[in-house]
Amino acid sequence: MIGVIIAFVGSGIRRSTPLIFASLGGVYSERSGVVNIGLEGMMLVGAFVSVVAGNVFGLVPGILLGALSGTLLALLHAVATVTFKANQIVSGVAINLLGMGLTEFIPEAMFGKTNIESLCSAPTISGFTPLVFVAMALVVLSHLILFKTVFGLRLRSVGENPKSADTLGISVERMRYIGVMISGALAGLGGAYMSIEQSACFTKNMVAGRGFIALAAMIFGGWTPFGALGACLLFGFADSLQTIIQTFGVAIPPPIIQLLPYLLTIVILASAVKRVRPPEADGKPYER
């Protein structure tokens, strides 16, 4: 019995980890005022690049390159939405299309198949790979950065009232670029975790909507790092409920269990909306 509970907790934490990375990313981006629904695409490229790079260069370079690939994709989003003031949702959709397209088309064209096995193996400490700890540390670090540093104050000011920040000498464009690129790096890390550490391979479309759940977690968590952590853990544990249910032989069909996190998200959003508010200027392009 204890064994089952421990397995459940461990599994829950592991399943939350990619969500935590992506969700944190979302927080940085939206706090600077840019909606980023392209987290899914950024996670996918992170997952893909980290496996391929990992196989060639090793575990750590692989992960770093995965994060970098996410950052590059995010850069595209930033250019479109911050410099060219394009609609942020449309840009996010395009990022996802790019991510999906790239991560299917390149492996199939180059390797003839869409799953790539990872040749790296990550060390584990009591069942958790290093990136899990990195994720937790990043949550604490992000809280510090966003709410206790000058950088964080300025980043948030740009997301609340860019006009004010602008008149006080803060570069709205620069802050938003940084926020968006950080979100890409984190999403890339989330993808890297999934492919290298969690499943030891990359398969097409493996992110399967987690980028969107991460968005929901961010909203539910009130756009704060700890809030996002809590929400991601909730979703992660809900996900790992699957294993428990199967262990106990309860006959709920897998597809139904799979849809529970999404349903949960809607329920939470529909009821929580009155409590939490996004950054004031979230989603609006800034023009002088």
């Binding site: 299309l97 397209g101 088309f105 199939e108 097409k204």
Partner: peptide, 9 residues
């Protein structure tokens, strides 16, 4: 899937 990629661009 090249089509998806083209679409994004």
């Amino acid at each position: 899937s090249f089509y998806l990629f083209l679409e994004g661009i």
